[in-house]
Design a protein around this nucleic acid. Structure first.
Lengths: 160, 160
DNA sequence: CTTCATAATGCATAAATATACAATTAGAGT
DNA sequence: ACTCTAATTGTATATTTATGCATTATGAAG
C-alpha cells in the first residue's frame, strides 16, 4: 500500500516513545495518527521491524527494538573443570569474595559472568580473588544459592 | 521448587545454543535434559529471564536474550574518545560499577584515575568491569557528576 | 489500456503465549 | 515438629500473535 513505509516509520517512533503492551494498543495509537490497518498487518510489520516484546520490571510486557548480543560463546561443559580452582567463599561489607588457586580467578569469574546472574551487579577478578558486588537487597543466602546453581559440584563448600 | 533455578540456568543455556522457535520446542529440550514442567511455567520463566522472541531473516521466529539498546550502542562518532567501550553505569552497595566492552575496562579506568577525582577513593578494573569505590559521604549524584566531567560525551548515558 | 506479476492487506482462524485460580511446596520463625 | 507466609507450579482458559487463503492494489511491460 502507499502508506506502508510511512506506517513502519511511525510504528518505530511509537515504540521508541510509548510503552506499548500489545498490538491492540499499537493499533489504537496508529489509528490516532491516521493509519488504518488491522492487527494482522501489525504482526507482519513487527516481524519485519524485528521488534520484540520484553518483560518489564513491573510485571508487564512492552514492545522494544532489539540489539543482538555480542556474547562470547564458551561451552559450559568446562564449568565443572574450572571450579577446580575454587578455594573458599567469604563475605565482608555486603560483598562476596571468592578465593581461588592463584591464576584461576579470571576463568572462574568468566563462568560466573556468563550465566549473567541477576543477583550480581558485577564481578572483578584479580589473580586469586574474585570480588562479587551484589545488587542492593540481595542477601548472603541469595548469593550462596546463585553460586550453587553455577557450580553445583561446590555445593558443600558454598553452603553455610 | 528445588529445580527452578537450575531450570532457569538450563533454559538460558539452551537458548544460547539452540534455535528455539516456540515454547513447545523448549519444553521438549528441557524434558530431554530431565526437567519436567509445563508450557505455563516456561512462559513465566521466559518472562523472568527477559527472553524475547525475534524474527529471523529466514522468516521464522527464535528466542534470544535481550540487550538494551542504550547498553550496546558504540557509535563510530565516539571512536576518537577514550570513552569508547563504555556500556553502562550502575550502583550497588554504595559502589559504582562501570560495564565496558571486554578488554576496555583498564584503559577506561586509567583515564578516570589520571584525573584524580576527589570523590573516588580508588578504582579497580577487571576485563569488562570497573569498580569505583567512592569516598565516604559521596552520593550517587556526585559520582555521576564527576564522571560527566571526565567523559562529557557520555553525559546522556551517565545521567539518570 | 490490458495483462501479468508482485506486494500488501483483511478476514478468519490456528497457533502460541500469558495468566487467574487453586493446589502444593519450600522456608523461616517459634 | 508446627504454623505461617511466600513461592512455585499445573490446569484450564483468556489473551495475544501469527498466518493461510482470498482479495485488492501497485507497477511494469507490451
Amino acid at each position: 500500500m502507499k502508506n506502508k513505509s510511512n506506517r513502519l516509520v511511525t510504528i518505530s517512533q511509537l515504540i521508541n516513545t510509548h510503552e506499548i503492551h500489545n498490538q491492540e494498543e499499537l493499533l489504537m495509537l496508529l489509528t490516532d495518527k491516521g493509519y488504518a490497518c488491522t492487527q494482522a498487518t501489525l504482526s507482519r510489520d513487527l516481524k519485519f521491524l524485528k521488534v520484540v516484546k520484553i518483560a518489564t520490571n513491573d510485571g508487564k510486557y512492552i514492545y522494544t527494538t532489539h540489539v543482538d548480543k555480542k556474547s562470547v560463546k564458551i561451552q559450559d561443559s568446562t564449568s565443572g573443570f574450572v571450579s577446580n580452582g575454587f578455594i573458599g567463599l567469604e563475605f565482608a561489607q555486603k560483598l562476596a569474595l571468592i578465593k581461588t588457586v592463584p591464576g584461576y580467578a579470571s576463568s572462574l569469574a568468566m563462568v560466573i559472568d556468563m550465566s549473567e546472574p541477576y543477583e550480581f551487579a558485577g564481578t572483578i577478578a584479580g589473580d586469586d580473588t574474585i570480588l562479587i558486588i551484589p545488587r542492593d537487597g540481595t542477601t548472603e543466602s541469595d548469593i550462596r544459592h546463585r553460586l550453587v546453581l553455577i557450580f553445583p559440584e561446590l555445593e558443600d563448600r558454598i553452603r553455610p
